[in-house]
Design a protein around this nucleic acid. Structure first.
Lengths: 211, 211, 211, 211
DNA sequence: AATGAATGAGTGTTCATTCAT
DNA sequence: TATGAATGAACACTCATTCAT
């Protein structure tokens, strides 16, 4: 699955429908840069990871994306709009990635391993985890973002349900969220077995395999 | 239990190191109104709930606490310091309150009900939940706050352990955090039974009662 | 009388000097929609009325005229140029309209009534009055606009002179301007008789009828 | 009469009640500068004269008043507030000055001469005239400013009435406004006699002297 | 001990204008 | 001919922080 930048899933109006067609990279500053919008969104996510919702500014995003300040405000009607679209873009990517994780799952054991990896996942996973929590917190205040968190939760549970049934999926989902946060915050690394035990138990000892 | 405002548990330096020199103790009741500090801390927490870490400012806090602007900068060396002390104050209150919850627990059933209440807790609980998540997120970036989250987690688990043993306590703790977030974000209220089932299962079917 | 948009009476240079070269005259009716220019000028005047010289922007004008932003900057070399041409267009229309007012004047009485109407004229007249004052004020700073105000004053006085002689025309003209402003700013409406008395007196008791 | 800066006659709230007591002018940048507020107001009026309502900015005012930018935004809640208070300050000064003009008037002749001076008044009077028109125009759009224009008109007429009676005062007032504008805009100077004649006539040939 | 005045850095945002197409 | 994308300069305004008192 190949996520594309969301088409205004939430908030704000794109000011201009984004002219396409490639362009000469060379001469003077890149004009006609069709990926610019996505690069800005990715930069915004980077800033969100680094500095949090409290620290995002047009200027930081522009610097990170290596575009002029005016370019950010040109493509996004407001900072809130930028943030909302960045979160939407994140959810879209994240959902696809999440589904991919389970492609190879063939047994209960596989499933558990995948989930333990998800929770324990190294620094590479830190980014997504932080963004997830930022989104949740932001959604608590901005109802417009609620759409995103709901869609996300729904999708995650749907994927898990394929293996566990709906009730366990809900439990698992909540547990995973808590575990991830604890792993992120723990000073000494949580042993894999502890994580595995928690997951095993949430799966339930009696769950018939449905993968 | 009567929590008192922490004495600079984390971060920041008081601007003026409190000259203990002159000033008769009796004269003007207490030297400079010790409640003011806590009132400011509570105001800071209020602002954090309302506007998040992104929205806290000296001015908003001063207004909320109904003290002059200078009073906030006088008592707290920096905004980061204020925030850190506010979180510390929150954890202290929260820990005490959390322990109180279990005072009356006499049976497994009691325990489950208390935890379901904790998760489903009405709007009154929203404040603490939001602050908890804000703290977690802040701690992800500011190692100085890690002390607080650890202390908090440790205390919570200790309390739960009294009833469940240490492994289940860890699982429960993570699950509760995830459940609380999901309840806060859910559009249609999560049924109590669903929450209860998840908790029951995390407690484990075989757990011997240790309350 | 049919005022047409002035051809750059003042200021600014058209960006592209209108290549008269190729292009058969008949083919696409008129080359590039001549009404668009006037529509933009009218939109600019609308914006001037609403937001004043302080508030005019290319974007507002484009939106009001319902043309793309580029169209405004294409037809007018700069914002100052647009403003100048809009004022010119206004003066042209206004002069014609002013003359028309006196078409039916046959007696001193008629004249007085027409002038009282001019001063007291309802909301429909508010637009022209505001624009007039805006122009005067703008002309105080931009000598290029002085041409317009002079032409306007000259024309107005010429028209009035036909009935009153030149001296009374000057007095009347000044008085009318003051009266109009006062009427616009008054909270409770100025009674017609007061206005009429002022005009009557400026006309002079002894003025022989020259209409 | 000694006009003092108005105490929030219109709009905005003063952020701080202005600490008084003089201060050492010397060492490092002037803090404690009690006249600063007035200096800013005067600077704002200067900018209004030079650049009009369209051109006023915090930065220009700050530069003109020789205070840091932050000082302007500190003392005035918004640019609109600054403008409103500047206009109020202007009206107060203007009213006083206007009254002073008539202190020496002892005869109808005196009155006429004073008024002719008022209209023809050299470059020194240009400033007040421009500000007057700016205020009128601004008041057309901002009802809050209407209070000022009304007070001003009322006061002017009251002064004139002392010599002319109320009806003639109204006529005169309007006429003066129109004459002043015309003088300002005229390329070749209006002859004094023309102005005098207009005023004489508005006074009315029969007006009994009431000075 | 306490506070209001003050300020410079930085914010989100707007916009005239340029330019490639 | 016409226009949308793009950008840099400027804007109003906010704020943490400093400091004199």
């Amino acid at each position: 699955m190949e996520p594309k930048p969301p088409e205004r899933t939430v908030g704000g109006e794109r000011k201009h429908p984004a002219g396409d067609t490639a362009a000469g990279e060379g001469r003077r500053a890149r004009r006609h840069d069709p990926e610019r919008r996505t690069r800005i969104l990715d930069a915004a996510l980077d800033v969100l990871v680094t500095d949090g919702a409290a620290g995002i500014t047009h200027r930081k995003v522009a610097a990170r994306a290596d575009v002029p300040l005016g370019s950010v405000t040109y493509h996004f009607a407001s900072l809130a709009d930028l943030q909302a679209q960045a979160f939407a873009w994140y959810v879209e990517q994240q959902t696809a990635q999440f589904e991919d994780l389970f492609d190879e799952v063939r047994s209960r054991q596989d499933l558990v391993e995948v989930l333990v990896d998800l929770v324990q996942g190294g620094p590479s996973r830190r980014r997504s985890a932080v963004l997830g929590f930022e989104l949740h917190l932001a959604a608590l205040r901005d109802p417009a973002l609620r759409t995103l968190t709901q869609q996300w939760t729904r999708d995650s549970r749907a994927v898990l349900s394929r293996f566990t049934g709906p009730e366990a999926a809900g439990r698992l989902d909540a547990l995973l969220e808590g575990l991830i946060m604890h792993v992120l915050l723990a000073i000494e690394p949580e042993p894999r077995e502890v994580t595995r035990a928690a997951i095993e138990q949430a799966l339930g000892p009696l769950t018939t395999w449905r993968g």
